[in-house]
Simulated scan of single mutants.
Amino acid sequence: MPLQLDVCVSQHIGDRHEQQDRVALLPHPRLRGVVLAVVADGMGGHEGGALAAEQVIHTARQCLEGYSPSEDTPEELLRMIFDEAHTLIRAGRFINEKDPHSTGVVLLLEPTRATWAHCGDSRLYWFRNGQLQQRTDDHSYVGQLVRDGKISEEEASFHPNRNVLLTALGGRETPLVDIGHNDALAAGDAFLVCSDGLWGYFADAELGGLVATQSAREAAEEMMRRARSRGRGEGDNLSLALVRLNEIPVAKPGLASVRRPVGSTPVTSG
C-alpha cells in the first residue's frame, strides 16, 4: 500500500528563560523514505542542558548518515546514537565545566517499519486511527511508582517529584535505553515524539483525537496552544515531532495523477 508522510516539527520556549529542548526531523541523505525524528530535553543549568540536547541531535545526524539497512539493524543504529551521545555529553562535563544531561527519544521510520528508543521522560506515542497502540514508559521516579501500582497516572501528574529521573544521557551510570518497534506500518498510524513540557498537559486519548482528525501541522499547533494555555505562565520548554501516515489515493486510468501536498514525503509499504 503506498503511504505518504504528513510531518510537522514544533517548539516553544514556554515560560523559561532558555530553550534547552532540541528537536529535529532528519531525512537519510541517500535512502528514500528513511527518516529520523529526534527530541532531546536538556538539563544542567545555564547553557549546559542546551549543549547536551544539541549533542543528541548532532550525534543522531552523524549516525544516520552512516546507516545502511543492508549492513545494520535499526536497533543497532538507535543504540549507537544513545551510546555515543552519552559518551560525548560526559566528555563535555570536563571541557565546559558544566554538568550537562539530556533525555532522548528517537524514531526511525523506514518504508515498512518503525523503530524507536528512549532514555528519560521524553516520550513516543504510537496511535492507529487515533487509538493508542503503545507509549514509552518514563524512566522517572513517578513513572516507577505508577508501574509498581503505588500511584495512578492522575496522581503522577501532580506528584512533587514528577521531574526526578532515574536515568539520563550524560549521567554517571550507563543510561537505560528501551527500544520498541512496529513492523507493519499502515495508513492511520501516527507517531508523536515530545518532551515532558508538552505531554504533561494531555491525556493519551486527547492526543489521539488530535492526531486522528487534523493534519500534522494543525494537530501540532493545537497541542502547543492548549499546552501554553494550561501552563498558566509556568510552562516548561515545549518540543514535538509529529508524523502521520496517510494512504495515497490511486489515480484512475485516464485521469491526472494526484498531486502530493507540499512538505509530504512518499514511502511505500507492503
Rank of each mutant, 00 (worst) to 15 (best):
D137L: 13
H139D: 11
Q131S: 15
A156H: 05
H159Y: 02
Q131I: 15
G149M: 11
G120N: 11
A156V: 07
R135H: 08
G149W: 10
G149C: 11
E154A: 13
D137A: 12
V142T: 12
E173H: 15
L166R: 09
N163Q: 08
L166S: 06
E155S: 08
R123T: 03
A168C: 14
W126D: 01
A117D: 00
D148E: 15
A117W: 03
T115C: 13
A156Y: 02
H139M: 08
I151G: 01
V146Q: 04
T136I: 08
E173S: 15
A117M: 03
R128V: 09
G130L: 04
E155N: 05
A156P: 04
G170Q: 00
D138T: 01
N129S: 14
A156N: 02
Q133G: 13
A168Y: 01
N161P: 08
D137Y: 12
L124V: 13
A117H: 03
L124E: 02
H118Y: 05
T167C: 06
V164D: 09
E173N: 13
R162S: 07
R135T: 10
E153A: 13
P160M: 13
Q131H: 15
P160C: 13
E153I: 10
V146R: 04
S140C: 09
A156W: 04
R172T: 13
N163K: 14
C119Y: 04
K150F: 12
W126N: 05
L132A: 10
K150S: 12
A168S: 14
W116P: 01
G130C: 03
E155R: 05
E154F: 03
S152R: 08
R123G: 02
R172S: 11
A168Q: 08
F127C: 02
E153Y: 12
W116Y: 15
H118G: 01
L132V: 13
G143S: 07
S152P: 00
A117C: 07
R147I: 05
L145K: 07
L124K: 00
F127I: 09
K150Q: 12
E153F: 13
E173T: 15
K150L: 15
L124W: 04
L124P: 06
K150M: 11
Q133T: 09
F127H: 01
E173K: 14
T167V: 07
T115H: 11
A117I: 03
R162G: 03
F127S: 02
I151M: 10
L132D: 12
Q144H: 10
W116R: 04
D121N: 12
Q133Y: 07
L132G: 11
T115A: 10
G143R: 01
N163A: 14
S157T: 11
T115S: 13
S157Y: 09
L132S: 11
L124S: 02
V142K: 00
Q131D: 12
R147G: 05
L132Q: 10
D121R: 06
G143E: 00
Q133S: 13
